[in-house]
Nucleic acid binder design. Sequence first.
DNA 1: CTTTGTGAATATTTTCACAGCT
DNA 2: AGCTGTGAAAATATTCACAAAG
Lengths: 227, 227
Amino acid sequence: MSDIPEGVIERLSTYLNCLIKFEQNGIETVSSERLGESSGVNPAEIRRDFTHFGTFGKKGVGYDVDTMIKNIKRILGSDEPHKIALVGAGNLGSAIASYEGLLQHGFHVAAIFDNDPKKIGTNIRNLEVFNIKDLSQILRSANITIGIIAVPPAAAQPVADLLIEGNISVILNYTPALVRVPPGVQLHNTDPAQQLLHTLYYLSANEKGLTRRKRSSTTGPKRRKKT
Amino acid sequence: MSDIPEGVIERLSTYLNCLIKFEQNGIETVSSERLGESSGVNPAEIRRDFTHFGTFGKKGVGYDVDTMIKNIKRILGSDEPHKIALVGAGNLGSAIASYEGLLQHGFHVAAIFDNDPKKIGTNIRNLEVFNIKDLSQILRSANITIGIIAVPPAAAQPVADLLIEGNISVILNYTPALVRVPPGVQLHNTDPAQQLLHTLYYLSANEKGLTRRKRSSTTGPKRRKKT
DNA sequence: CTTTGTGAATATTTTCACAGCT
DNA sequence: AGCTGTGAAAATATTCACAAAG
């Protein structure tokens, strides 16, 4: 039965962002066309995406913004809070710990780890920095399922191994290092260089006078023009 | 003639990363099968991806790692250096300025900007922090084409507007704010929350006992199992 | 014998276009 | 009138399978 394309899931979070924007502007109802404009996705595709999970719209009217936000959150699982272990208390780690976007979506940095004795025991955003030696143990006892690696690249794999030992489900790797994980663990690499590499291709195509364009969003929904 | 699928371009940078790893390990030749193992892409697809740009392999042998790295870099355009304007000299900005991965791929932070008088004039990584008021002007005179937004969310759109005024081609937005850009500017949102949202779906699917798995890489190559 | 490059076959995703509901 | 939900069509992408090349 249910085999939902990955693209659908990715677009869902794009829709969610747009819907939240609509909500903030006091808009209570949107048509797939309106949502299409703001998300850059074809309206028919939006409607079909939704039908994978049920029928949410009112014919002749559209979708209720509030309800749809709740629906998508429930589908994705962001209607419940999720705990994050943040490894690395440097600049990047501090930035992530203070990141508003995470809280807004129910993500909660539950513990910060580092191996630097000068940092261990200090506080970042009201959270004590723990010794990385205790990572696996704390992970298990606090039932944390998401880990963010924000350490120097050389330490990425050892940290990943500790997270895995602690029974992590999702790893966000902010390091340029290639990290290996066993099946069953979701790895997401978030390397600015990698992201920029794609765009370069389209950049040089433009300079050569070819037309090539890309709308975008995080971990981008794929978009190309029809014939 | 040339309409190269976006997926191909994305996979290219994945291959590049794998090839660089091979190179570091002293491996001089790879077959599409080997590259497939390490990148998680079907060997036939890799071969077809390459044929979009020419024929690079030796039958019975495979691909020369070194040559292939050069080829992909040339195709993407990362064989030449690219200048970046970094906006925001806080924790995140500092982390990005020190990011090794950027340099490795020929990206070079050419100027840092902030609006905080306490930060303007200080140095990060040997780079003076400039007043954001001068952003557009410096952008144009230094011919900088890539901008990274690492400021508080509320400032994201105004900063984007300044970048656009400075004739930017690519914007990497590290803010959870939705940023609007005119056609002709490539926008990439890099919001950890957004990235985590996708993974949640697969997480809860697992908890429900369904099998659902995802290999990954930055701005993920799509992978699903065949019938 | 190994591995590429590619026509042909499959599979998947996107889009059209419209019946049907409000 | 206005917009959803969806069969059917079109467009894309992936994979097979094998001839040709070293």
